[in-house]
Computed example of a mutant assay.
Amino acid sequence: MSTSNKHAPQVTASTLIRRPPAEVFAAFIDPVHTTKFWFSKSSGPLSPGAEAHWEWEMYGAQASVRVAEFQEAERLVVDWTGTDGLRTEFRFVPHADGTVVTAIESGFTGTAEEAIAYAIDSTGGYTTALCGAKALLEHGLELGAVRDKFPDAWVQ
C-alpha cells in the first residue's frame, strides 16, 4: 500500500547560524559556497525558475532541482526533478543572534516503510549539511561532514 502525499512524513531540520539572513541565503544559492558544505559540484547558482544539476562525486550520486519559489533572504523552494513530488523548502528566519535556517522536505512516495526510511535518512542528511553550513559561515571551516558521513560508500 502506498502512502499519499497528504499522509506522508515530512522532514524538518533546523539550526541557528550566526550570520545575517542575506549572507546565509546567498550561501545556499551560490555553489561557490554550497559545494563547501553540501554537494560537491553544481551546474550553476539558483535563481527564480532556475534548474541546477548537483553531484555528490564522492558517492557517485547526482540530482537535478528546479527552483519553484525564491524569496531573497527569506525562502527558497526546490522541486527535485525526476521524482513524484519531492520538494525541499528552506526558510531563513531572522533571529537576535543571526538566522534560523530550516529545511523542510516533503513529497515522499512508496510504502509507509519506504517513506519512513527515506525520512529518517533525509533528516540526518539535512542536519549534517546545516552543521556544515554553520561551520563554514560562522568560522570559515570546511568540515567535510557530508563527504565523510559514509566513507565506506566513496566511489573509488
Rank of each mutant, 00 (worst) to 15 (best):
1 M>E: 07
1 M>A: 12
2 S>F: 15
2 S>T: 15
3 T>R: 13
4 S>L: 13
5 N>T: 14
7 H>D: 15
7 H>S: 14
9 P>T: 06
10 Q>L: 15
11 V>P: 02
12 T>V: 14
13 A>C: 07
15 T>E: 10
17 I>D: 01
18 R>A: 11
18 R>T: 11
20 P>R: 01
20 P>F: 04
23 E>V: 06
23 E>K: 04
24 V>W: 01
29 I>H: 04
29 I>Y: 03
30 D>C: 09
31 P>L: 10
33 H>Y: 14
34 T>L: 10
34 T>C: 11
35 T>D: 05
35 T>A: 10
38 W>L: 08
38 W>H: 07
38 W>S: 08
39 F>W: 07
43 S>P: 00
43 S>E: 03
44 G>R: 02
47 S>Q: 09
48 P>A: 02
49 G>T: 09
49 G>L: 12
50 A>E: 03
53 H>I: 01
54 W>R: 00
54 W>V: 00
55 E>P: 02
56 W>F: 07
56 W>D: 03
60 G>A: 05
62 Q>M: 05
64 S>G: 07
64 S>R: 04
66 R>K: 14
67 V>T: 05
69 E>W: 04
71 Q>E: 13
73 A>L: 02
80 W>L: 00
81 T>K: 05
82 G>T: 05
83 T>A: 04
83 T>H: 00
85 G>A: 10
87 R>S: 08
89 E>L: 13
91 R>N: 06
93 V>F: 06
94 P>V: 00
94 P>Q: 01
98 G>F: 00
98 G>C: 04
100 V>K: 02
101 V>Y: 00
101 V>F: 03
101 V>W: 00
103 A>Y: 02
104 I>D: 06
104 I>E: 07
104 I>S: 07
105 E>F: 01
106 S>W: 07
106 S>E: 09
108 F>L: 04
109 T>E: 11
109 T>I: 11
110 G>H: 08
112 A>C: 09
113 E>K: 12
113 E>C: 11
115 A>I: 10
116 I>V: 14
116 I>M: 13
116 I>N: 14
117 A>P: 09
119 A>L: 06
119 A>G: 08
122 S>W: 07
124 G>I: 12
125 G>Q: 05
126 Y>L: 02
127 T>R: 14
127 T>G: 14
127 T>Q: 14
129 A>Y: 03
130 L>H: 02
132 G>C: 08
132 G>T: 09
132 G>M: 07
133 A>I: 02
133 A>L: 01
134 K>L: 05
134 K>D: 06
134 K>N: 07
134 K>E: 06
135 A>F: 09
135 A>E: 08
136 L>N: 03
136 L>C: 04
138 E>Y: 04
138 E>A: 07
140 G>A: 12
140 G>M: 08
142 E>P: 10
142 E>W: 10
143 L>N: 04
144 G>S: 12
144 G>R: 11
144 G>E: 13
147 R>N: 12
148 D>M: 13
150 F>G: 11
152 D>E: 14
155 V>M: 12
